[in-house]
């Protein structure tokens, strides 16, 4: 079986902060699964996401994402890996406020190695599905509503159909009806991608194939050790 994420004995300590560390003994996610990860603030959520998205280097243990051992990659390689394989959505600060909606979506092609000009045709397909009007696409991001901003963020994450999509509390700024719509859209439009959806709102878990509790993941890790 292919794993989108394969973690074994992963340990991470923030430099200069001995109090907090992340320990996961084993965590595997099958490719193509839509996964809910429950994590409260302070649970090591940000640390895990920084490691999964190859922003921070994993120093101890095994961290394989999409079959690539991230611990063996240099900083520049990790950045290229992220550009080519991972789509990310955050709670806020998804968009560059001074760019238009369309320009923000096009940012997806900025750092990837491959020529993605063809993919730009996908923009209209995706924005149509998301109900983003031409007016919104022309608008500057800082003049959009939060809902519009999040839809632009999804459009960008989906544009290149990356094999892994990481969403970090993308719905906490949204109303509850928009929230369900957002998740359904995300799942429906990423048929081939693995989705890791992180939230502190357990009520969202039923939308997903599997759900994990980061606190449990860590405790199990400690138990195994």
């Amino acid at each position: 079986m292919e794993f989108a994420v394969d973690i074994q004995d992963l340990t991470y300590r923030w430099p200069g902060n001995a109090d907090f560390s992340l320990n996961i003994a084993r965590w595997q996610i099958e490719a193509g699964k839509k996964v809910f990860l429950y994590g409260q603030s302070g649970s090591g959520k940000s640390t895990l996401l920084n490691l999964l998205s190859a922003v921070m280097p994993a120093k101890q243990g095994k961290l394989c994402v999409l079959g690539q051992d991230l611990t063996s990659l240099a900083a520049a390689q990790r950045d290229a890996f992220r550009a080519n394989n991972i789509g990310m959505i955050f709670q806020q600060f998804n968009l560059l406020p001074f760019l238009s909606g369309r320009q923000n979506i096009e940012l997806a092609t900025l750092f990837g190695a491959k020529t993605r000009l063809a993919k730009l045709e996908n923009i209209s397909t995706i924005t149509d599905k998301l109900g983003l009007s031409a007016a919104v696409l022309k608008q500057q991001a800082n003049q959009m509503s939060v809902g519009q901003q999040q839809r632009i963020a999804i459009a960008r994450a989906l544009l290149l159909q990356p094999p892994l999509i990481i969403a970090d509390e993308p719905t906490s700024a949204l109303d509850s009806d928009l929230r369900d719509e957002f998740i359904q859209f995300l799942i429906a439009n990423s048929p081939n991608s693995t989705v890791i959806f992180v939230s502190h709102d357990r009520s969202l878990a039923p939308h997903f194939d599997q759900s994990f509790d980061l606190f449990e993941l860590q405790r199990r890790g400690v138990a195994v050790c």
Partner: peptide, 14 residues
């Protein structure tokens, strides 16, 4: 910092 965060998530080098 916010600007760089967006670009970093998209694969920009630090």
């Amino acid at each position: 910092r916010k600007e760089l965060l967006v670009l970093r998530a998209l694969g920009a080098k630090a």
